[in-house]
């Protein structure tokens, strides 16, 4: 082995504290996800194949059922929402999953990083991929079914997209927490977490058709309100008042709560030895 590289100044080694250093740490996790994604051919399946297949099959079904144009948009927006949340939350879950699959989590967490570096860096990648899925589906829907998500202006579409990305962060944080507590036994939650909200938040139907007790539960899911807010522009009156406000309020609450849970789960893993079990 060659001679040792000149030591770096210890102050530099620690990275001078401040915003710059925090952003560099954040970039580690964004770039990590970006590079992993770029080399994985199944990324194409995640952001192109499945969302488009899903959109086409649902779109063709409602065309076959001769639904009114408003209903077509109603249902297709649900499809956009589901695919966007699924892809984006997976990226947040990858914050924990990549390290668990590669059994490298202790090498990651021995570095002076905070849980938010991990989560936010991964979420940034999720936002990129989620936005790509949303845009792709919107283009395909316009081209195949003549449906435009921006027919009522760009603002409602952006408000929906931001709401979806926030909802995905909350779901992803919950998945990360479960993974940190139960290990890879909780891996399925990364793929099935969104399915639970599918039933509750009226992805393909208005929540008004749900039984009253389920409507109460639906009111606690931010996605319900984001969909209601968007669909209000199509003439579907929302079941719950001020949907955007409620949606953002709940989503922020869940993201903050989810983050606190994830931070707790990491500390718990340091106490129970789960971190070591999940490593080499």
């Amino acid at each position: 082995m060659s001679d040792l590289a000149a030591p770096i100044g210890r102050g530099e080694a620690l990275g001078s504290p401040g915003l710059g250093s925090e952003l560099v740490k954040l970039s580690a996790f964004f770039l990590r996800s970006w590079r992993m994604s770029r080399r994985n051919m199944f990324t194409l399946f995640e952001i192109v194949f499945w969302p488009v297949v899903n959109l086409l099959s649902v779109g063709l079904l409602i065309t076959f059922l001769r639904a009114e144009p408003g209903t077509v948009v109603f249902v297709l927006v649900g499809t956009f929402a589901l695919s966007t949340v699924q892809v984006c939350q997976l990226d947040v879950a990858y914050a924990a999953l990549f390290d668990m699959w590669s059994r490298s989590i202790k090498h990651q967490l021995v570095a002076p990083i905070r849980p938010w570096h991990l989560v936010l860096g991964s979420w940034l990648m999720g936002m990129l991929r989620g936005t790509a899925v949303f845009t792709l589906q919107a283009l395909v829907a316009h081209w195949v079914f003549g449906v435009s998500v921006v027919a009522h202006g760009l603002a409602p579409a952006i408000a929906l997209l931001v709401g979806l990305l926030l909802s995905a962060a909350a779901v992803g944080l919950l998945v990360c927490t479960l993974l940190m507590v139960f290990g890879l036994r909780a891996e399925m939650s990364a793929w099935s977490g969104v399915s639970l909200v599918l039933l509750l938040c009226g992805v393909y139907y208005p929540v008004s058709i749900l039984p009253a007790p389920l409507q109460v539960v639906a009111a606690g899911v931010p996605l319900t309100h984001f969909l209601e807010a968007f669909r209000a522009n199509l003439g579907y009156a929302p079941v719950f008042g001020t949907p955007l406000l409620r949606g953002y309020g709940l989503a922020v609450l869940y993201v903050v709560g989810g983050y606190a849970l994830f931070a707790w789960a990491i500390n718990r893993a340091r106490r129970t030895g789960m971190l070591l079990k999940l490593s080499d």
Binding site: S21, K25, A28, L31
Partner: peptide, 18 residues
Amino acid sequence: SLTAQEILDVAARSYGLA
């Protein structure tokens, strides 16, 4: 999937190195 260089780069970024 990360290369040797990328692994070191990510590790260095984790310490906030400019």
